[in-house]
Nucleic acid binder design. Structure first.
Lengths: 179, 179
DNA sequence: TGCGCCATGTAACATGTTACATGATTAT
DNA sequence: ATAATCATGTAACATGTTACATGGCGCA
C-alpha cells in the first residue's frame, strides 16, 4: 500500500497524530488522498499492530486526547527498503480525455465551452497548489533534501502548466477548423 | 463510474464483445483499465440490465460464442448527457514523488540509480505508447473527431516527455550538488 | 508437451470515498 | 444560532486488481 509508506515517510520526519496526518493529506497536493479518515486510522492501526510505529496517548485539557505515533526501528527499516525499490510509474486517471474523444457529438460552442471550463479549473487548481507549496509540509534537513522536495513541487506545478498549454493549443486548433 | 462511459463511448462507435473491450483496454494507453475481466463483464451486465446496451449472441464454429453489445437509444442519450458534464480534473497517483521526497536517506549513487531507472522506464513507456497510437482504437468520422483524438494522444505523449525532461533536469541538479 | 488465443465468467482481496457518530470549545 | 476546529472512530459503498475456472484450436 502506498498510503502506508506515505505515513511512514511523514513519521520519519516527526511524530504525528492521525488527525495531523489527515490534515496534511487534505491540505497538501502531493499526498493526494482526500483527507480520508477511514483509511488513515485503519492504516495507523495496522502499522501499530505490525510494530512499525509506536504510540503514546496525550491527554489535553478541554480537548479530546491525541494519539501520537512515532516511527520504530522496524518502521524505519521498512521505509528504507521501500526507498530502494524500483520506481512505480505514474498513473493518470484522465476522464476528460475520454470525454473529449467522444465529444464530436457536441456543437462547436458547447465543445469550446467544455474546454474553457477545463482550462479555468486547471488554472484554479494550479494556483491553489502554488499557494500550498509554501506550507511546511516537508522537511529540509539537508541541502539535498530541499532540492528533492523542490523537484517534487516543480513536477506538480509543471504538470498543471502542461495541461493548461495543451488545452489552449487545442482550443486554437479547433477555432481554426471553424475558420 | 468512468468505465461505464468508456464502454458506452466505444459502443457508440461500433458493437463490441466483452473480449474485444478487454483487449482495447489492455492495449490502448488511453483506456487505462488493465484489461480487467471482472469489471468489464460486470459493467456490461449492469449496462444491459439498465437497457443502455442490447446484445446478440453470435455462435461460432470451433470457437466459444460471442456476446456482441450494441448501444441503445437510452445508452446514446446517457453518453450525450455525460459529454456535457463539467470536466473532471485529472488525477495522478505518483508514488515515485513520495519515494523521492524521503530519498535523502540514500547515498548519492543509489539516488541517481533510482532516477536513472525512472528515466528508463518512462522512456520505454513513451515508446510503447507511441507505437500503440497507430492502432485503430478510435474513429475519425469527421475532421474534427480526428483532431480531438489527435489531441488526446498528444496529451499522453507530451506527458511522458514532460516527465522525462523533469527527471533529466533533476539528475543534473543533483550531480551539480556533488560537484 | 506446453503455451497463447479465443471467449466467457467468478472469488477473494485491496484500495478509496462518502457519510455518519460523538462531544466540548471557540469564532462569526 | 451556526459553523469550524479539535480528535477519535465506524458503516456502507464504489472501484480496481489478481488469480482462478472452463475448454477447444493451432503453433513450436
Amino acid at each position: 500500500m502506498t498510503l502506508e509508506y506515505a505515513i511512514l515517510g511523514l513519521l520519519s520526519w516527526k511524530p504525528f497524530s492521525g488527525y495531523d496526518l489527515k490534515k496534511i493529506f487534505s491540505d497538501s497536493p502531493i499526498y493526494y488522498w482526500s483527507g480520508n479518515n477511514n483509511q488513515i486510522y485503519r492504516t495507523l492501526l495496522s502499522l501499530y499492530e505490525d510494530g512499525l510505529v509506536s504510540r503514546t496517548v496525550e491527554e489535553q485539557e478541554n480537548l479530546p486526547a491525541k494519539k501520537m505515533y512515532t516511527l520504530t526501528q522496524a518502521g524505519q527499516q521498512m521505509l528504507e527498503n521501500w526507498l530502494r525499490l524500483a520506481p512505480e510509474l505514474p498513473q493518470r486517471k484522465h476522464a476528460f480525455l475520454l470525454q473529449l474523444g467522444w465529444a464530436d457529438l457536441l456543437p462547436a460552442e458547447e465543445l469550446d465551452h467544455l474546454l474553457s471550463l477545463y482550462e479555468e479549473e486547471v488554472t484554479a487548481l494550479a494556483m491553489i497548489t502554488g499557494a500550498q507549496k509554501k506550507l511546511p509540509f516537508y522537511p529540509a534537513r539537508t541541502r539535498r533534501e530541499h532540492v528533492l522536495w523542490q523537484a517534487v513541487h516543480t513536477n506538480l506545478d509543471g504538470y498543471y502548466q502542461y495541461e493548461i498549454q495543451w488545452v489552449k493549443n487545442l482550443r486554437q486548433q479547433l477555432a481554426a477548423l471553424d475558420h
